[in-house]
């Protein structure tokens, strides 16, 4: 047993997954990950000049054949978005951790938030289908970092591990050795082994072709199917059904921890795989309830997506400004009781 922080558990998870390269740039509240990994002698570690370098160095290391990771928060994530799109197009497996804080802009640097949900899904340009996991406990930070590496190798894409400043800085007593996992190894050749030409231009077997619309359509179908098939193997969520209620709370990250205090009166659905969204599972849970409530630390980013898959009206409890008080959440839940059921 040891007392560690979410960010440290993420670092431990990366090491357990066989990560051999870390590049990152300091940013609150993600910096503890690089502080921890800087001491790890079994990996190549670099504190890069900026987040753009961090993501591109990780891409280079991954192409050279090692498991690579970078971690940041919202502003750094924005700088990494072009690189993330590159890694999707060029099929580069890696893990990008985003420990969220309040934005936009410099926002509230030390205050936790969940404002990058949309950014994770749609932040890079063009169409792509990212896989994203969101742990809500310290031991989950460990487990899902490992699974993020597995999903990255499975899908040959950059997998996002989303976290919030609360979970990242949360200290819990954990027994990491109890976590069971298997590791997925690299299925792709590495540089020097005849990998050929890697480009993020639309290409066929490394030969760019940027004029043929049918080739793009073919590519996008293939990418969509590849990401869907890979994600199917990582359907992580927790569904605590309360038979005595018709009210369902959907919450993730720190909000799921807060919501777990109300399971005596509510059912709780906690998605861990945020993207691709667990449409079937959410729709099924929504069908079993009349009132769907999403608690999140933003103005309703995931709520809108849930509404489209739940096919029901979704009420949002927005917890804003970087603090989350169970009493305030309870107040909001009580107020919703006055609303008509759908």
């Amino acid at each position: 047993m040891k007392l560690i922080q979410g960010n440290e558990a993420i670092s431990e998870g990366a090491l357990a997954a066989g990560m051999k390269f870390y590049s990152g740039y300091p940013i609150t509240p993600a910096s503890e990950i690089m502080h921890y990994l800087a001491k790890a002698k079994q990996i190549q570690f670099i504190n890069s000049e900026d987040e753009i370098a961090a993501i591109n160095m990780a891409i280079g290391a991954s192409l050279a054949g090692v498991k690579a990771m970078t971690a940041t928060s919202g502003p750094g994530m924005s700088l990494m978005q072009e690189g993330i799109g590159y890694a999707h197009m060029a099929e580069v497996p890696l893990v990008v951790v985003n420990v969220q804080r309040v934005g936009p802009g410099t926002g509230m640097p030390t205050m936790p938030a969940q404002g990058d949900v949309m950014q994770v899904k749609y932040g890079s340009h063009g169409d792509y289908f990212p896989i994203c996991f969101y742990p809500s406990t310290v031991s989950e930070c460990y487990k899902y970092t490992i699974e993020a590496f597995n999903a990255a190798e499975e899908s040959l894409s950059p997998v996002i591990l989303l976290c919030d400043g609360y979970v990242g800085h949360l200290y819990e007593t954990v027994k990491l050795s109890e976590t069971k996992f298997e590791l997925k190894t690299r299925a792709k050749k590495k540089l020097g082994e005849g990998l050929g030409h890697t480009t993020s231009l639309l290409n066929k077997n490394g030969v760019p072709n940027t004029k043929d619309p049918s080739l793009y359509e073919e590519y996008l179908e293939r990418a969509k199917k590849k990401m869907h098939d890979a994600a199917e193997k990582y359907k992580f969520y927790e569904y605590t059904k309360n038979e005595n209620t018709r009210d369902l709370i959907i919450a993730y990250g720190i909000c799921a921890r807060v919501a777990s205090a109300f399971t005596d009166k509510y059912s709780l659905f906690k998605p861990v795989r945020m993207f691709p969204i667990l449409s079937e599972e959410i729709e099924k849970a929504a069908k079993e309830h009349d009132r769907i409530i999403v608690i999140e630390m933003n103005a309703g980013q995931y709520s809108r997506m849930i509404q489209s898959v739940a096919k029901k009206t979704v009420h949002t409890i927005s917890v804003l400004g970087g603090t989350i008080k169970p009493s305030k959440v309870k107040q909001a839940l009580d107020a919703l009781k006055q609303q008509p059921r759908s």
Binding site: F21, Q44, I46, G60, L63, A64, G65
Partner: peptide, 10 residues
Amino acid sequence: AVSEGIKLAN
């Protein structure tokens, strides 16, 4: 930047 990652990894 990509080259530095490659060189550090191999």
